[in-house]
Structures are given as C-alpha cells and as structure tokens.
Design a protein around this nucleic acid. Structure first.
Lengths: 201, 201, 201, 201
DNA sequence: AATGAATGAGTGTTCATTCAT
DNA sequence: TATGAATGAACACTCATTCAT
C-alpha cells in the first residue's frame, strides 16, 4: 500500500535522522563500547530491530554519526567569519559567543563537538607525523584568525594551530560539561577568548 | 615452607600496585565498558585469573582505581602551595609548570587526572544542587589561590570555583592529549596561566 | 506488528514452563553445581542466551524450580485425602498407590519429589530447633493420617511426624531410582505401606 | 634429612588417610561437582597443592574415596552375620541396630553409605540388564538373609534382591539425614526392620 | 614435602545481530 | 515495515591444576 513513493522515502529519512539524533547523546556520553543497542532503542522509543533497518551495524551507525558530527555547516560558517572584514579580536569574540550560545541551547551541538573531538583524539597521526586534529578544516580556519590576531597584536604568540587546538579543546570541555552535569557554571565568552587573546589592559 | 610472611605480603602489594598502575592507562583511554579484562591481563603480562586474586571484579578494580586517582598527595601539595608566602601569580605559575611537567613525564599522572575528571563529570550533583566537582578539595584550594589573585589584581573576575574548574579542565584536556595522541603540541605554562590571569602585558 | 499481546504473553509463559520442566530433570539428577547452562540449553534445544531472557541467573532459575517443586497441588490433594471418611489404612493404601503410580508414569513428578526433598535436607532447622522438613505441609497432613491410624490401631507407634518423614523419605528414594537407574525393581505399594502399617496378620 | 624411610612412609600414609577421611564428608554432602578443592583444603587445614602430592587429580581423589566407601570390612561382617546360626529375624534385628548405631556415632560411616549408594545409582546397568546395585556383595548377603527369613515366614514375600535394595535404601536415607540435618528424628531399629519383616503380632 | 600464588580452560552472562511474525 | 524473542560469539569470572619458593 504505497502511500506515494516520495512520502515513503521522506518517512524513512525522518526515522533515520531521529535515530542519529538520539544516538549522538548516548555515544557522546558513554562512548562506543559503553553504548548498548538495547538502551539506544529504549531511549529512542523503537525496537532494536528497527535500528538495523536503517543501519547495518552499531559500527555503521557510529560511522554515520561521525559524518554528522563533522558538520560541514560549522566549517562553512567559520570560513565566512574568517573572511569577514573584522579585527581578529572581533572575530574571536563572535565565535566564542556563538559557540557558548549554541552549547547552552542545543544539546545536539554539544554532543557533536564532543564526538568530533574524541574522534580526532583517537585518530592516528598521518604519515608526515602531524597529529590528526591539525588536519581538520575547522582548525585551519581558526588558525588563520589566530594568525591575523598575531599580526594585529591582539593574540598571543605561538603556533597558530596549537592555539586553535587549545581554543577548540576548551569548547570540547564545556560541551562535555553540558552533556554530563546538570548544574555547572558555564564559562563566559571572555574566558574562552582568553585562550587566545593577550589580556586586555 | 612459605616465603616468609612479610616478603609474601610485600609481593602481594607489588602485584596489586602493578595491576592498578597498568590498568589506569587502559581505563583512562578506553573507559570502563571499553576495557576488556583479557586485554588488561595481556597488557600487564599476567593471566586473567590473577587479576581476580587481587580484585573481586572489574568493578572492584575500577573502584580501587578511583581511589588511586583521587590522589591525596596532589591535594596536600596544592594545600601547601596555597599557603606559601607568594603572590597568587607566582603560585599559579608554579602550579602550571608542575602540572605540565608531570603530564609530560608521567603517563600515570595523566591517566589519574583523566580518570579523576571523568569520575567527577559522572557524579551526581549533591543535594544542594552544587555539581560534584566543586566539592573537590583540589578545586577548593585552587579557588583560594584564585581569590588571592583577585584581591591582588592579577586574576580575572568571576566565581573562583568556576575559574578553578576551568583551570583544571584545561589540565584534563592536555592529560587526554598526552594519553591519546602521539605527536601533539603541548601548551606551555603561560597558556595554562591565561585561564586565570589577566593578561597584563 | 506484534503478534497480539495475549498470544505473546502466552508464548512467553510456554517457553518459561518448558525451560523449567526440562531443567528439573538436570538439576534433580546432577545437582546445582553439576548442571551446566550449556547442557541445559542443548537439552532444551534453545540457545544459552534464551534462558537468560526468562531467568536472571542460574540461581534464579533454580529458585523458580524450588517453587515449582513445592507443588501446591500435591498438598491440596493430600489434604482432601486426609479428610475423606476412610480408615487410615485405606488412605495410606491410596496414597502409596498414587505416589508409586505417578513415579512410574511421570518423570517430572519424580524430579519434583527429589528436588523438594533435597531442598528440605539443605534447609537450616528453624529457630525452635525443629528441622525444616517437619514444617512442610505435606508432612503435616501425612502425620494426621498417621495419628488416625495409630488411634485405629493400624499404624505403628511413634512420633507421627517422624513416621511421615520416613514415609516420604522412601518416596524420595524411589524417585531417585526412577531418575537415575534404567532397570530397577520398583517397590510395590505394600512395601511403602509397611513404613507405617503394623504388619497385617 | 630422612627421618628414617619407614617413619616417612607412615607419615605419608597418615596424611593420605586424613585427606580421604575429610573429603568424604564434602563429597557426600555436595557431590563431585559441588565440592571445590579450595574448600576441601581449607576444611582439612592444608594447602591446595598438598592434595596434589597425594592424589593426581580431583577425579583420582574421588576414585580413592569410592574404594574407601566400598568398605570391605562391612561386607565381611555381613557375610559372617549371614552365616551365624540365628533366625533371619534376629540377624535383621542385629544388622539394623548395628547400622543405626554406627550412623549415629560415626559420621564417616554415614558419608560412606551415602557415597556408596550414590555411586551405585549412577553406575550403568551391566550388560545383562541387571542394574548395578544388585551386583553389590552387600546386597547379595542381605538377600540371603531375606531368603532365609522368607523360608522361616518372618520376612515378606518378594524378590530378595529388591527387598535388600529397599532395606539399604532406607539406610542411605538416614545416612543422608545424619550428614545434612542437625536435629532430626532418627528412625529406630524396629522401623528399619519393618522394610523386611512381616508385622509381628 | 608443603605452600599458596599463578595459570588458563571452562562456565556463567551479556549483547550485537537475526528473523519469524 | 516494525517488532521483540531467539541466537551465539564475546566477555566476565571460577576453579582444578601447576610450580617457584
């Protein structure tokens, strides 16, 4: 009884998205090994078998999550920000505010940051010895802002990639807190800025 | 003929310590669920059954690790530092250098920081709503240094406990990097200081 | 589409009963320690995991068996018999015939008698020093028949509970034989009667 | 430092006997599978390894126990009794009193009866279909007394071996009670006699 | 010869995955 | 298509046996 092929595919997409969305929470909190399919299914409110109609295996589901977490939108947005005609200090301020705002509002964003960072941690360094995180585009764009700031004198000295990594590390830290702890004192944008900026005054 | 009771107890203690020491790495890297007893045993170089002569269960071993990670020595050391007749800035500088130095030299210290932080993340907030980390003595002593610094004008404004949590959060971050990634750019003490210090010039 | 909730619950009950039924044999023959889950599963013709969908553990399964073995039906039946307007001798004759008949026909009855008796043997005597078996209702009803017989002069003198225990002990004995030995000479009802009755003539 | 070869062998024999003696209790109570070497060693008050200096394996120890339980002395004694110039009724009375007396006094005798009976239960019937118990010499001698009693008119009719089996079955029953239950009402010799004797009067 | 810590094969239990409905 | 019971490989844990002391 096909309710129109399109509608069908649409429903399929919705369920898939729902599974991904809900799974992200679990995997980010408990890790791959600590997440049980049974818990996932109960949490989503579907049967275990249903998950296997959308994903071949737990690993496959996790791989899909990996892609979801490596959010292209975020990268594009950051790319735009990096190119805006603003001082590095202003760019960093905007970015910090945006990150902390989204962490507060959007649990999925937090989960995505957590998962993405953990994946980078676990990746092997590539052939030329550079550790994996530094390959990330997100880091590259951030590093460009850092370089701009160093030229402008607002950002501390040091390897731009190292500083970008530090900056996003702190973002990961508060994404973790968001996922795990109920009442916690979130840092404010100025705290996050301080990873990069020379102390004002 | 038993090997003399003292020698025997001593050997027992050594094996227990060895199991704990080696396990810390695994549990910190892979989490509780992700750590298999078989891997542990292979990693330590003993039979699976041997682990069960020293610990009742995987959970029991993990609980012992928890105690080990909640290292009293570190707290005592920090307590002493907090009472030294130094400026807060100097205390923070010493602490940062000590932390980063130990992270670089001592994988076990890194594992201990990681485990300890994760345990705090997972703890439920206590009855009065304060999240668990803030109960930690380590945080309390750090917060006292922060307060001193705020009075002295060297440390940024803000809830001292929040700032202490931020500071140790960054320590956790680099403990993670130490455990997981082979080639990574460690931040230097000045970067860690910046979580707390006004970046005066 | 679930198979209809009722049918589902029914199937669940059937499988549970089947596991219990088949397990009884194994535990009665081999004891708790001597019964392997793997053997049980093979014997029942299901996977090991399936057993754990119905019982939390081997101990839990055994506990369920304990309840099954403490068969309320037998007690009720005996209660009725005890109240019938018959001589004690007639009652004992009927009971013996019934027991021996069921032992011959129904392996499950034999297993149930065996398990039940062994459980009573292992129970600690209660606070007032009376051994556990004597608390059993089955024994109490049998003792009442014994008392009647003693009044009527057909049953030997002695503590009625001790004699009831003796009677059921012999039943246990032949339940054991039924379970363990292929060709064995079953006693006949007259032999069983003789545990209680004064020799005829 | 040999303390004389004989003394040495003697000590060896004593320890072996002690292990056997103490083990009998455990195996009779808990069965083969239910008896742990660790428990045995603790119960005897020696190290686990020591058991393996006297027996090759748990199975080997159990086999030695089997021989011990198949006590030749008991058989010889019964053989003598069977040949005594007494009525069958008197012989049975003596035997019953002897059995019940030893059960009360000697836990090892009880354990031996239990083990011996259980071994017979588990043995496969031999080629000609006769169940194993009937091969036992103990049964054969008892059956001879039964036959004598049947000729004399004091013993009930029926297959003498079946009746002998019944008689020893009841002995097993009270050996079990002796091993397992603290306070229990032991049957008296007259009760045991009644398995065989026509009710006097 | 006796010890008891170490071993690893074997057993109980979990959980990702399959499949009949 | 969705379900959840059934499956069995993988994992935690036990215990008979070995072996250095």
């Amino acid at each position: 009884m096909p309710k129109s092929p399109e509608r069908c595919a649409e429903l399929r997409g919705e369920m898939r998205a729902r599974i991904l969305r809900e799974s992200l929470r679990y995997f980010a909190r408990n890790g791959f090994a600590g997440t049980r399919i049974a818990d996932l299914a109960r949490g989503i409110g579907i049967a275990q078998g249903t998950i296997y109609r959308y994903f071949d295996s737990k690993e496959d589901l996790f791989a899909a999550l990996r892609e979801l977490a490596a959010n292209g939108d975020d990268v594009r947005e950051l790319k735009l920000l990096a190119r805006l005609p603003l001082t590095a200090k202003a760019k960093i301020g905007r970015l910090s505010a945006s990150i902390l705002g989204r962490l507060a509002d959007d649990e999925l964003f937090a989960a995505s940051v957590v998962l993405n960072t953990q994946l980078m941690l676990e990746e092997e360094p590539d052939a030329d010895g550079r550790p994996a995180p530094y390959r990330s585009e997100l880091y590259a764009h951030t590093a460009r802002i850092v370089e701009q700031g160093q030229r402008e004198g607002s950002v501390v000295a040091g390897d731009p990639l190292k500083l970008a990594d530090y900056y996003w590390g702190v973002a990961y830290l508060y994404a973790l807190k968001r996922l795990f702890t109920a009442g916690y004192a979130m840092i404010d944008a100025a705290d996050l800025d301080r990873t990069l900026l020379k102390g004002g005054r």
